[in-house]
């Protein structure tokens, strides 16, 4: 089962990656090869198998509702590419994305 350049383009948008035509082509070929290999898994019958999401099957882990120190704002913003001393800055957000 392959993945076409068009599909790769859609997935790239979903993943917020920007690939040029050459990269799209290469990605389509590589992913097709990898997905072909994954076809191996179709041989395994799993309809009665519970999926395993966590290897260590712990449950009900909580923390108490207690306040802890927040980061000083300068320190939080220090890592940011662009800020105005109060907020992170990004190009205008207009409606839904």
């Amino acid at each position: 089962m392959g993945i076409s350049v068009e599909e790769v383009r859609k997935v790239a948008m979903l993943a917020r990656l920007l690939l040029d035509d050459e990269e799209l082509q290469a990605m389509s070929e590589q992913l097709t090869k990898i997905l072909d290999y994954m076809e191996l898994l179709r041989r395994v019958e799993t309809s009665n198998v519970e999926p395993l999401a966590h290897p260590l099957e712990l449950v009900s882990v909580f923390r108490p509702d207690q306040l802890a120190a927040s980061l000083p704002r300068e320190q939080a913003l220090a890592c940011a590419p662009r800020h105005d001393g109060q907020c992170y800055l990004v190009p205008a957000v207009l409606g839904e994305l």
Binding site: A68, S70, R73, A76, Y88
Partner: peptide, 18 residues
Amino acid sequence: FCGCSTKFGAPPNTQTCP
């Protein structure tokens, strides 16, 4: 998921942590 306060009205980005 963390110990930051949920109080409304604090100056921006003063109730955050990693």
